[in-house]
Design a protein around this nucleic acid. Structure first.
Length: 469
RNA sequence: CGGGAAGUAGCGCAGCUUGGUUAGCGCGCCUGGUUUGGGACCAGGAGGCCGCGGGUUCGAAUCCCGCCUUCCCGACCA
């Protein structure tokens, strides 16, 4: 019996495919309030893998975790003009509590620059207290008009880093360090997503920042997704919240601050960067389950062999589960495929008769026969191969769908299905408006060699133009 | 928030135009049996405030009004 598609094919309707995957892989459901999301155990397990990888990198970069309150006095937001202007439309505000109208409305945090700024001012006395490097894992609320599970929900989970430094150079260097050593490293090595790194144009910049850096990934439909951002906030928030320190010379000086974040949107990006018509495709480094051992039949000898294999894989450090043969084989295979488990190890009587197992890769459906005793040695190697090849094929796909163009009309044409790269000199306010009218945005500005510029005023910059999520 | 479509069992849908007694179908789920190398089959069974609220009517899934939610397209965004 030929396997028939259980999901809407990507080519037929990509957004529908995405929803099908989220539902059928049991990742998330819509919550009862518009824009809210219930993350199911499988989706949350993926998020936990993402969290632990990012958290370890953040700690390596020297930042410490802390926790700040969900509720923020509305007056805090107002202290930074651009910040309040940028976030006002999407704020959820508490006006009543304890059965009474509040004297000052309370905002549900859309991000925590303001509260954290308030406490940085309190904690920072001297240059010896700098740099102050903080991070928090939290939920935030931004009222979304057009929500989509993981990609854009009104409440989402994220990490937000907030740091204070004595000099602009130090702040700038640290934001860059986070951007490269935490975000880009994580995206490349764990999610296997190649990125375009760059800065945002003034129009796309974070509200209150002096500079915003982004990691832009390409999804399988050719659209761009901002997967992490790092901001230099200059002295904007330091001024608003009086974040001063006393220098070695005894002078009072304003700090420079940064902030940087990545969210549950990464789960959506993961789905769309690698998924295919059979469902999710998880890179082994982020897969909660890296291998499933499938007992083709529910028979004592088969089950015993499976259990031995599972034990040997666990000992080899592979995250593995056992699927004992209840229900039809085809059904079980399909279910594991939808969930994107990288390796399927099929064990049946025919295999055992030959002393082998059949190992199938999720990413390319390649099958290999391995001796039973070789599985625990070979599986970790195969997983690394899959991780590497997934990144490579994502990179090939991205490069094949990225074109250098010489004019705005050409860019508009190319960006219907991929990324257009164009000289930044050719873009003025009217050109950017024209692109926006066509449903396109400038995803980032970068140098000719792909590195991150210090500002949009540098000479010879390129911009990446695409449709975006 | 503007334009469009839609909400009937866990999921996908029919029924509504032309109001009328027990609201159907497929998949899934439960029980028993036969099965199991790419979504198995047979038999039996459970499961519904027909999105919510109001109105019209002797009578509403069906007609009218309001609201909520979802999807698509725009404007906004991690």
């Amino acid at each position: 019996m030929a396997s028939q598609s259980v999901l809407t094919p990507q080519a037929e309707d990509f957004p529908r495919w995405y929803q099908d995957v989220v539902a059928k892989a049991e990742m998330a459901d819509n919550g009862p309030v518009r824009g809210t999301m219930v993350i199911r155990p499988y989706g949350y397990a993926i998020w936990e893998r993402i969290q632990s990888e990012i958290d370890a990198r953040i700690k390596d970069a020297g930042a410490q975790n802390a926790y700040f309150p969900l509720f923020i006095p509305q007056s805090y937001l107002s202290k930074e003009a651009e910040h309040v202007e940028g976030f006002s439309p999407e704020l959820a505000v508490v006006t009543h509590a304890g059965g009474e109208e509040l004297a000052e409305p309370i905002v549900v945090r859309p991000t925590s620059e303001t509260v954290i700024g308030e406490f940085m001012a309190k904690w920072i006395q001297s240059y010896r207290d700098l740099p102050l490097l903080l991070n928090q894992w939290a939920n935030v609320v931004r009222w979304e008009l057009r929500p989509r599970l993981f990609l854009r929900s009104s409440e989402f989970l994220w990490q937000e880093g907030h740091t204070a430094h004595a000099t602009q150079e130090d702040a700038s260097d640290y934001a860059m360090k986070i951007h490269l050593e935490v975000y880009n490293d994580f995206l490349n090595k764990v999610l296997a997503v190649p990125t375009f790194l760059g800065i945002k144009s003034t129009r796309e910049r974070f509200a209150g920042a002096t500079n915003t850096m982004t990691c832009e990934g390409m999804m399988r439909d050719g659209k761009a997704l901002q997967m992490a951002t790092s901001h230099e906030l200059g002295q904007n928030f330091a001024k608003a919240f009086d974040i001063y320190y006393q220098s070695e010379e005894g002078q009072a000086a304003l700090c420079y601050t940064t902030s940087w974040g990545s969210s549950t949107r990464l789960v959506g990006g993961l789905i769309m960067a690698h998924g295919d018509d059979n469902g999710l495709v998880l890179p082994p480094h982020v897969a909660p389950t890296q291998a499933v051992v499938i007992a083709v039949r529910d028979e004592p000898e088969v089950n015993a062999a499976c259990e031995k294999i599972v034990a040997s894989l666990k000992a080899a450090g592979v995250r593995v589960v056992l699927d004992r043969g209840r229900g039809s084989f085809g059904r079980r295979v399909t279910d594991w495929e939808i969930k994107g488990v990288p390796l399927r190890i099929e064990v049946g009587p025919r295999d055992l008769a030959q002393g082998i197992v059949t190992v199938v890769r999720r990413d390319n459906s390649e099958k290999v026969a391995l001796g039973i005793d070789a599985v625990s040695d070979e599986a970790p190697i195969l997983l690394e191969t899959i991780q590497r090849e997934l990144f490579q094929s994502a990179l090939d796909r991205r490069d094949a769908n990225t074109c250098d163009v010489a004019s705005v009309p050409e860019a508009i044409n190319v960006a219907q299905t991929g990324f257009a790269r164009l000289s930044w000199d050719l873009i003025g306010p009217s050109e950017e408006a024209e692109l926006n009218n066509q449903g396109l945005t400038i995803r980032c500005l970068q140098r000719m060699d792909g590195s991150i510029p210090a500002s949009e005023l540098e000479n010879d910059l390129l911009c990446i133009i695409a449709k975006a999520y």
